[in-house]
Design a protein around this nucleic acid. Structure first.
Ligand SMILES: [Mn+2]
Ligand SMILES: [Mn+2]
Ligand SMILES: [Zn+2]
Ligand SMILES: [Zn+2]
Lengths: 150, 150
DNA sequence: ATCGGTATCGAAAACGGTTTTCAGTGGCTT
DNA sequence: AAGCCACTGAAAACCGTTTTCGATACCGAT
């Protein structure tokens, strides 16, 4: 994916004053650009490192704070890697979906499937559970990493 | 860890014909009993607390160590809750499976389903990924907790 | 421009689960 | 009895993340 997603619904900040968060500040803008460029899931610390590489001066605390808000707003997806570290990636759709993620480089593809949604709902109901929710993550080697490994 | 690459002769507990693995020590035995009694996923600290409640003197470090080994051996299942804490539960089958877990009390049911296995494999393959793996967790309210809540 | 109020920043400290360290203990074999 | 060595556990380290709190940036009002 190329950068510059432009056509973003835009957060009325400078426009209407009392704006929603994110955007508006130099730090939020810089973070937004990095997120638009990173192709896969990255840790907060990796994102912070990328900001510094670009010459942006943003505190790690600020990175964490923005990622948390973006995550709550559904603008970024999160997942935990095997070490327990939280990884972030810009979200491309507002619909419920899951990810196929490369365990080597973090690149990921958003996928959806009624099959797994139905299955989750069914087995939970059969077990007598209500208010059902689920987490599904698929990991593998992306084409590039698989090629590089052979 | 004390690896020592050489095969560990620590299998002598089995030599006494006592049964499955990890055993032999007072601590391992006590942990085994607690795991057998706990009906759902519990944190290492909860398990440690339960041991103390029963009057067993076992160090928290030892609890972590045994749980890690049991987990690697497939004798206990693990999952991470929303706070990132690792939860443990005795595993009842050696076959690949998933869990429907109560987000209120931790009680859980083991389930399996070819539908979700096939779906995961399919979407990953369609995305060009290889060496595919997946994690699936279903959460909800168990009958008891649902009743209690209304 | 100046002032004041408020949202945001960020370095440093705190937090909390987990792992590592390392001196001691105790079970087994000889 | 002696020795080997896996096992133990209190204390410290680890490390990602959150909290604290004084500093700074932003903005409207004067
Ligand atoms: Mn997404
Ligand atoms: Mn499965
Ligand atoms: Zn890759
Ligand atoms: Zn329950």
């Amino acid at each position: 994916m190329t950068s510059h997603s432009t056509a973003r619904p835009a957060q009325r900040t400078a426009a209407t004053g009392r704006g929603t968060r994110v955007r508006g500040t130099r730090q939020a803008e810089a973070l937004s650009h990095v997120l638009a460029d990173l192709p896969g899931f990255s840790s907060a610390q990796d994102i912070h490192a990328e900001l510094r590489r670009r010459g942006e001066r943003v505190g790690l605390t600020t990175v964490y704070r923005h990622l948390q808000v973006l995550s709550e707003d559904g603008a970024v997806d999160t997942l935990r890697d095997e070490t327990g570290e939280t990884l972030y990636r810009r979200c491309e759709t507002s619909a419920h979906h899951h990810h196929v993620t490369c365990r080597s480089c973090g690149r990921s593809v958003e996928v959806e499937g009624r099959a797994v949604e139905r299955w989750a709902e069914r087995v939970a109901t059969e077990a007598g559970f209500t208010d059902v929710d689920h987490t599904v993550e698929i990991f593998g080697l992306c084409p590039d990493c698989a090629r590089e490994r052979s």
